[in-house]
Nucleic acid binder design. Structure first.
Lengths: 206, 206
DNA sequence: TCTCTTTTGTGATAAATTTTATTAACCATC
DNA sequence: GATGGTTAATAAAATTTATCACAAAAGAGA
């Protein structure tokens, strides 16, 4: 049986397609082509068609893709027709910036709870949230059925905090800590590390 | 002529190797093996050996790699033996968090100037920086010989701001704006967009 | 010195990803 | 309803990337 296992690299491009389509839609466009979408994203038209065709036939020959329909399909594929609640762990400068960011809603996500371990911060406000004690993480996460975490803690504690997060049943972690996390294979981890990306670019500078 | 053109995907892994080696060094380790390094990073030992061998022979059979030497070599390859000054553009919540972040120094980078276009912000302080008028971007960037920019501006203005940045001669941009930038081929752009990465992960959630 | 274990560097092989080329469908216009 | 210009879907080919497997080198211990 040919299991319909789609390469992760393809899945990773879908959110970019969706983002571009949502922008087009906001600009009043109703349809597009793989060519136009590719030009915007710097991706070949053939690749976009091939990626999308892994999930179904969403376009029409001669016409292209109906934007609202394709957006709807991509949102279903990425499971963001519902809103995912997020536990934000770490109420430092970066955590504060993220808690204030308004761009998650409408896009499938919502910061639901903010945690920290510092006595001075627990109980204080950050945006609309009251900072919770990380000691209560498991209880609160389970109560609220949270399935996604964002980590904005120092690298020195990232591994231990991540293990605590996994104990709560969470299986998706977006980590801003500049260190690799060693977690069970069924936990999905993504990293954001500006230094890594800066160092990647300087390789090419004169 | 077989130009020694190294795949970008290989270059992109070097900063991760460097980061892990620096951590090991701080922990007092003097040597390591491709196996140990790979275990930490979740990368196969063979891939690490092959990647490093593209740049030279840094290890010794039977012994592995001398950590200080390999760190030094990677820093040279990535051109971070010197410190790169960065222009940070956009003094919102995220820009403020980045301006406060202490982790760039020691790793090849330093925020040198902070810009914004808002009357209320220009002249005010953010960390140790005085927020500059974006109208002065080209003059100040050229004066300070800045070659790297970080963009923390709204998506709606990211393209136009990026074009202004490129006019100053900058050829490396790390953008936090959730939109693709259309720039000349000789400009290196990296993106940080948590929403894209969150949506990538939810594909795999139940 | 000899043997055993470890570990690199690398050619060969395998797997994966992307591109190319082809076919068939769609639409507007005449 | 025929024609020409578009465009998606897809099979095949090409390219890129990752893994495998092994010779050679190093060091430790007998």
């Amino acid at each position: 049986m040919d299991m319909n296992l789609i390469p992760d690299i393809v899945v990773g491009r879908l959110p970019r397609y969706l983002q571009a389509l949502q922008r087009m839609s906001e600009d009043g466009h109703l349809s597009t082509s793989s060519q136009e979408l590719g030009d915007r994203l710097g991706i070949s038209a053939a690749q976009i068609r091939k990626d999308l065709s892994q999930f179904g036939e969403f376009g029409k020959q001669g016409t292209g893709y109906a934007i609202p329909y394709l957006i709807d399909q991509l949102e279903s594929i990425l499971k963001i027709k519902k809103v995912w609640d997020i536990a934000l762990i770490g109420a430092g400068d970066l955590g504060r910036a993220i808690a204030h960011y308004q761009g998650f809603s409408n896009r499938g996500f919502r910061i639901a709870l903010v945690f920290d371990n510092s006595r001075e911060k627990i109980g204080k406000n950050i945006g609309n949230f009251i900072i919770q004690d990380i000691a209560d993480l498991e209880k609160k996460v389970r109560e609220a059925h949270i399935q996604v975490a964002m980590l904005t803690v120092p690298a020195s504690v990232a591994q231990i905090v991540a293990e605590t997060v996994v104990k709560t049943g969470i299986r998706a972690i977006l980590s801003y800590a500049p260190t690799p996390l060693n977690l069970p294979d069924d936990v999905h981890v993504e990293y954001i590390d500006p230094l890594i990306q800066l160092q990647h670019m300087t390789y090419y500078l004169g």
